[in-house]
Amino acid sequence: MRTVIFRTTAPYLTSLMVLFSIFVLLRGHNEPGGGFIGGLIAASAFAIYGIACGVPPVRRALVFHPMSIAGTGLFIGASSGIISLFSGVPFFTGLWIYPTIFGVEIALSTPLVFDIGVYLVVLGTIASIALGLEERERL
């Protein structure tokens, strides 16, 4: 499958897909999308990169082991529920703030933090499975 065309286009395709996955993640609260689907898109992006250029470059690009990314996601997800405890409301109550950054009002919330956690878990888990399967020579 490692044709020249595929190898040349794969990095661009991957970056576009990762960008798109973040877009899907962030719009999720109001439009179709969200952390789960975003994570799947990002994972397939890395899977494609792996098929095209081999697994080692993907692992270098990811810096962390995909399973650590999943673990971090789980931690972020659980932490987002704990944040609300410090405001004196029950565990996992959604909290919202609307800071104005560069003149634009942005809605930040603990559900968004949680969704980012979901995104990282799905990304990390699927990517580690896909990369593990692609890595046939080493094992």
Binding site: G28, H29, N30, E31, P32, G33, G34, G35, F36, G73, L74, G77, A78, G81, F91, F92, G94, W96, A107, S109, P111, L112, F114, D115, G117, V118, V121, V122
Partner: peptide
Amino acid sequence: AHGRNIVNVILVDFRGVDTLGEIA
């Protein structure tokens, strides 16, 4: 819950604890 996408709001807010279990 300040969200128009009901599916997502259910997943990350109304039933967030379920989702936490699921991602685990």
